[in-house]
Design a protein around this nucleic acid. Structure first.
Lengths: 155, 155
DNA sequence: TCAGGTTGGTGAAACTTATAACAATTGTTG
DNA sequence: CAACAATTGTTATAAGTTTCACCAACCTGA
């Protein structure tokens, strides 16, 4: 007689090879981070992607859209909607590039600076909360380093 | 005189707080894994998501679609298209559940078993290749553990 | 049994993401 | 300078994901 697995609770499920795969574990961890980011920044109206754009422009004023896209590993077509949203929120602005009439240079507005500083406060707070499941700062540093290695590894 | 940042190469970009955020690093690492997965499994015609479904059904035959969705952290509506694809490829099949006429029980087909064994071979190979940027097996174990903790952390 | 609430699978709509093409501009090369 | 290739921002298109409501089936409690 075949037992009825359909009623099995989630705890008892055998994940098989998935449990040993870095790719799967990365995905699960990242899903959790995105979900928590959404909760924390719900009222701010920005996604992790928009936050990343602000972070880049904040530290590298005058970059073109494609430069930001390349920095973040996105396609430049994705940057159009992102910059549109941030411009509509008066957080950054497109200025015509001085030496290339095709491209725009991106700059934070005053409101953008305030907004971003506030957002960093929030995100840092929730990052620290999440990092509490790590033993100490050295483990976090090590993890950041390992993740960077994995992000840059080529086959 | 303001220097021209628009020509800055990607190497020189200042990532600011992003560099210290686990969420961002996780995203970058995962993006890389997904891209590499796509390269390795291009001819197999499956995504990481479909692979995960096969992995769960393989080890837990008879599960319902919803149970698989919960195990993977997806919405159950996403499972419809996924199972449709896998069924069209003759890799798994929906059988009517014995004690609940609403639900299906999912089982691998013979072809599915062969296909999945082959896929696991490939994915394991590429996982090991990616893991070469980790020092040794103990570092990988530790990383898997840290990722699981982050995936289950609640605020 | 029967009402009310819950759950499983599904489909439509909204949303995001990836790919391709396009016009305008710039760079390059003979 | 002229022809050709490459690049920028953009739009369109498609493909993939989430969100929501729906219906049928199940379950509970009077």
């Amino acid at each position: 007689m075949q037992d009825d697995r359909s009623k099995k609770s989630e705890q008892e499920i055998d994940f098989g090879v998935l449990g040993e795969f870095l790719g799967y574990r990365l995905r699960r961890a990242q899903m959790n981070f995105f979900a928590k980011f959404g909760e924390v920044c719900e009222d701010l109206g920005i996604s992790p992607g928009l936050f990343a754009v602000l972070a880049i422009v904040d530290r590298n004023p005058g970059l073109t859209q494609t430069a930001v896209a390349q920095a973040l590993g996105n396609d430049r077509s994705a940057m159009v909607a992102a910059v549109d949203k941030l411009e509509n929120k008066n957080l950054l602005e497109r200025r015509p590039a001085v030496n290339d009439r095709r491209s725009y240079a991106l700059f934070m507005t005053e409101e953008g600076n305030r907004f971003f500083a506030n957002a960093v406060e929030r995100v840092s707070c929730y990052e620290n909360e999440m990092a509490k499941c790590l033993k100490d700062d050295s483990e976090k540093e090590w993890l950041l380093d390992a993740l960077e290695r994995l992000a840059n590894k080529s086959l």
